[in-house]
Design a protein around this nucleic acid. Structure first.
Ligand code: FES
Ligand code: FES
Lengths: 162, 162
DNA sequence: GTAATCAAGGATAATCTATATCCTTAAAAA
DNA sequence: TTTTTAAGGATATAGATTATCCTTGATTAC
């Protein structure tokens, strides 16, 4: 039960895009190179962000991606769901319906108590991600990452941003 | 990113075992039949519970499984981890290390801020499951499931419990 | 206008994981 | 002694993840 690695990719890309000056775009190529990722496959993750309207895109040279909203309006949950889907991690196959002691055609009025608890846990997970804003992440990075690497990365990105 | 269906199976089996009278055992065959599941494959899930010491087993005719501890001492997390493993759902592949602006051999002192938040969400999920006791589930089932089905199931199980 | 660059997305392949079955072994009970 | 059982090894099938390649049409730079 692992999240796909694209989730890590998308979150890191979003963090980079959040640091981009107003109105500029960064291409898949640059994002892939910056993170050491396969460009074509990373592209699928970015398409997910695009379909979820988290990023704007533009074509042609100097084209690429930028955030569609302020980083303070984008949560981890937005990004994770854009890549991983909105489905629950626990899927109930309703095995209780196979109980041989049930009258034929019996219909449950509530979801199973086991599913309810598993879904509560899913909800707790989602709530934590919904409370984590992209802007908080960016602020945190500024403290974690040494200033020289931060500055060098900024320059590296700006050189490639259209 | 789905939990394996064995999680649902194991939780339902644990609920049935919790209803078993003191000292009696129920076999894989009975549990598989009761839930309409493939016996051999369900066996793997039950082996997981056994390895986690959540259930006791005994061999021979009238053998099978029973809870190793009171249902009030077993949580959803115990069961889920026994089947699904204890690993985190978010795996950090440390892609930040591929940043071309880093000095060679640079070593991070903290886990990445993205991983920290994803792991917090994992923790929230686990905490919810750790707070859900098997005994609470059994009490809840008594309310959800119609009394006649409950009684019939109880008889069905007792007929097969060694 | 022309050539280069880009996102989007379809098609396909490789690799892993989940699902499932079969079979052997050894212990316990009848 | 025979039957029943859990444990676990060996495979097999299906599905998901990871990855590459190629086409299309839009946009920019020249
Ligand atoms: S029937 Fe699916 S969790 Fe109970
Ligand atoms: S490097 Fe893995 S989450 Fe940031």
């Amino acid at each position: 039960m692992n999240l796909k690695s694209q989730v890590e990719w998308a979150l890191h890309c979003a963090a980079v895009l959040a640091g981009l000056p107003e109105g500029r775009y960064l291409s898949t190529k640059a994002l892939a190179e910056f993170h050491g990722l396969p460009k074509e496959y990373l592209s699928k993750a970015l398409q997910g962000l695009s379909q979820a309207k988290l990023v704007d895109t533009t074509l042609g040279p100097s084209g690429g991606y930028r955030l569609a909203r302020p980083a303070s309006d984008i949560t981890f949950l937005d990004i994770v769901e854009a890549v991983e889907g909105k489905g629950r991690t626990f899927v109930c196959n309703n095995i209780r319906a196979n109980n041989p002691c049930r009258p034929a055609g019996f219909c449950d009025d509530k979801p199973c108590g086991i599913a309810r608890i598993m879904w509560q846990a899913d909800e707790a997970w989602r709530r934590t991600l919904a409370d984590a804003k992209l802007s908080d992440l960016v602020a945190g990075l500024a403290k974690d990452v040494p200033a020289d690497i931060m500055a060098a990365s900024r320059d590296w990105v700006l050189e490639r941003a259209g």
